[in-house]
Every structure is written in C-alpha cells, then in structure tokens.
Amino acid sequence: MYEHLIVKEQDRWVEVHLNRPQVRHALSRALMREITTVARALSDRTDIDVVILTGDTRCFSAGADLNDAQAWADDSLSTVQRRDIAGTGFRMCKAWEEMPQITIAAIEGYAVGGGLALSLACDWRVLAQDAFVSLPEIALGIPLTWGTIPRLVNLLGPAKAKRLTILCERVPAPEALSLGLVDYTCDKGQALFRAQALAAQTLAQPAATVRMSKESVNAAATALNHASSYMAHDQIALAASSPESRAARGQALR
C-alpha cells in the first residue's frame, strides 16, 4: 500500500516506520504525502488508540529532501504550484497533530530539520541517549516552517524557541530532555521499546477519556498556532528564491 512506509498493526496500536534508508529517511514530497495519508487513515480508526512513528536504528530522519526542495524556488512553476509544494510539510505535521490517538515518536541517531519538526507534531518524543536533534533550516537559507515555531514556543517558551531556530545548534539527548524538547530518553537501540512501553501504559487507561483529554490539551495549546504560521508557505517560497538561500542549499548538496 505504501512505497516509503512500513506499517505494523498490533492490538489497539500501530507502528509507522519511515522507509527510505538509502537517504536516511529524508522527507521527499512522495514520502510526506504518504505520511499524511497514513495519519488521516488512522485518524478514522476507533479501534486504534496509539500510533508510534519511527525510523530505524540508525536515524529517525535527516529532514526535508533538499533535491525535492529545489521546487520551492522553481521559476518555471506557477505561484500556486510553488505554494502547494511548500505547504506539503505543513499539511503532514498538521495531520499528525490532529490525530485523536496518542502519537509517540521514537528517535534513534538523530532527527534533523523536518524530521524533528514532524516529531514535534506528535504527543511525546523518546530519544536515545546517544542521539541528537537540530533545526538547520536558517543555515540553509530558509525559515523554519511547517507550523514548527508555534509548537516550539508552546513547548519551550519564546527565548529557547528562538535559540533552537536561529542558532541551528546540535542538541544532544540529555540537553534536549532538560529543555523539554523531548519527553523521555533511553539507552541506545531502545527508543522503539520505550515507546512501546508508553503505548502499553496509555492503553491501560480508558480510551475515550484519553482522547477527550488530548483534545482538551491541544485545544488550549494550539489555539493561536494557525494565526502565527499560516503565511509559512509564502515565507519559504520567498526566502528559497533569494541568491543567499540558493547558495546555502547548493553548499549543502555538494
């Protein structure tokens, strides 16, 4: 059913494995569309109460596929086409954020850029002790979009959100935990097992009440998110077309 995902269904929970290992699970448009599709399909399932999202033992995701990303600034495309392309990640993250089930990202190795952005759309993040996270978008000449900035502000507050967004620092697991960027750390190779244990804890609770509680928390936390991120499609298209942005991405692709 999916070209770039492996979906494993258990009793009342599902694992979604990113499956582009040859490019470190880089988020191509094709993969992002599949991630969006599986989120929307699972959202309609009343027999599934937890969804775990993961990569493999090497990494979660290297972020947006920069080869695909060149389309953001492709002058041969119409503005409507470029906006649609630029909005792919936003729609993907929103689909995961809006899932009624509890969602858990299990991260080994690293979650970089769009990979971390996707994990932030989940309810909880488990990070292996030797892993790291980072948001290098500005160093690539593009703003951090996909609705990630309001999620960071909700989690960390404005100062730390600016630090992670603007300085493009590599954040190791212990610091990510202390900042509140992830919720749990674990031994190397154990992220999926820790996520499964969290799934079991969640499944022990009354399912309807869990869903109601998640909906209430999200309603309070995300009330202004759209107002602060709806222009992201246009920001990324504008920034991506600048000479400095093209040069930064060119360096990264070498």
Rank of each mutant, 00 (worst) to 15 (best):
D130P: 01
S228T: 11
Q129T: 09
L31G: 03
V14R: 00
A62V: 12
A159P: 01
L144H: 01
Y2C: 04
E175A: 10
P158G: 00
L181W: 01
D74W: 04
H226I: 02
D187H: 14
A131T: 10
N67L: 13
G141F: 09
G147Q: 03
I102S: 11
T202Y: 05
C93A: 15
G115T: 11
V51S: 00
C186G: 07
A86R: 05
L77I: 05
S178P: 04
T79D: 15
L177G: 11
L18P: 11
A252L: 06
P100D: 02
A62R: 10
I236G: 04
I142G: 08
E34F: 07
A30F: 11
L198T: 01
R83D: 15
C186D: 09
E108M: 01
E3N: 11
A128P: 06
E169K: 12
V50G: 06
L198Y: 04
M231Y: 08
L53A: 03
K160S: 13
L192S: 01
G180E: 12
P21W: 03
P158S: 13
N154W: 13
D84M: 07
L238T: 14
A121T: 09
L53F: 07
A128G: 15
Q235D: 12
Y2V: 04
A199Q: 06
D49E: 14
G189L: 03
V38K: 06
L152I: 10
Q101F: 07
R40S: 00
G109T: 01
L66V: 09
A111T: 05
S229N: 09
S78K: 01
L198W: 08
S241N: 12
H25I: 06
A191P: 06
Q196R: 15
H233Y: 08
Y230T: 04
V182Q: 00
Q235N: 09
V23N: 13
V210D: 05
V126Q: 02
G109E: 02
E97K: 08
L253P: 02
Q70T: 14
G157L: 10
V171D: 06
R45E: 05
S134L: 11
C122K: 04
A41C: 03
L118F: 14
R151H: 07
E98L: 12
F60W: 01
S216D: 05
L238R: 08
E215S: 14
V133S: 00
A176I: 01
V23A: 04
A197C: 02
K188Y: 10
D11N: 15
L140V: 03
S213N: 11
S178Y: 11
A176K: 05
S213G: 02
M92K: 02
D68F: 04
R83S: 14
P21C: 07
E169Q: 12
M99Y: 00
A173R: 08
T148I: 00
G141N: 08
P172R: 01
S28Y: 05
R45Q: 08
R12C: 10
A106R: 06
G189Q: 02
I149K: 05
L224M: 06
A207R: 13
K162Q: 13
F60I: 04
K188G: 06
A41N: 09
L140R: 12
I85L: 14
R163E: 15
V217R: 10
T185A: 06
F193V: 11
A139D: 14
L31E: 07
P21F: 05
L253Q: 14
L155Y: 02
D187N: 14
V23F: 02
A131G: 13
T54H: 12
Y230M: 07
I138H: 13
G63S: 04
